[in-house]
Design a protein around this nucleic acid. Sequence first.
DNA 1: GCAATGATTTACT
DNA 2: GTAAATCATTGCC
Length: 196
Amino acid sequence: MKLPDSFYRRTNVVKIARELLGKVLFTNVGGIITAGMIVETEAYSWREKGCHAYGAKKTNRNAVMFERGGHTYVYLCYGMHHLFNIVTNETNIPEAVLIRAVQPVHGIEEMMIRRGNLKNEFHLTSGPGKLTKALGIDRKLNGKFLMGDEVWVEDAGRRISSRDILESPRIGIDYAGDDARLPWRFTLNGNDWLSK
DNA sequence: GCAATGATTTACT
DNA sequence: GTAAATCATTGCC
């Protein structure tokens, strides 16, 4: 079952980030469907400095974050990696959830080809840049709506116990000062596909 | 118009 | 452990 857009339009991005753990991200790229269960997320809000839309300042890059919840936000980082986010909240309230790692569940052979036949399957999707490459995500998928048929998220019926969810500070945003310490990163405890 | 810089990954010493 | 790869976006001139 696809998650309804009402799921993404709620006002608490941190809660949504936590609830996305265990859901399954699907893409349909080049006629091939691939999917991975979300095992690591981070929340971003205009209220804190780690966010591209800090201060609710709109630019060409982050414009899609001002759309209503349920859109995708894909952008290029370090000149070579695509990062995948899910926009949340209502129109003109820029908040998003970064998907940092997934566990492959469908189309694994295609992911291996896209990633270049790795020796270790645990490296397939265990990082924000890796999973986008494995799932065929690039900026052509920026601004898509998750109710469409190119990229979407399903509830596979898996119930995640709160005991299995770990909170920690977000990664790679030292420039955000005090906001870098917010415990807005969520991981599935003990999962083999978490980023390092 | 131009220089600085990442929500990273990979390879090499 | 350190560094290179590599480029769109950003902010300042």
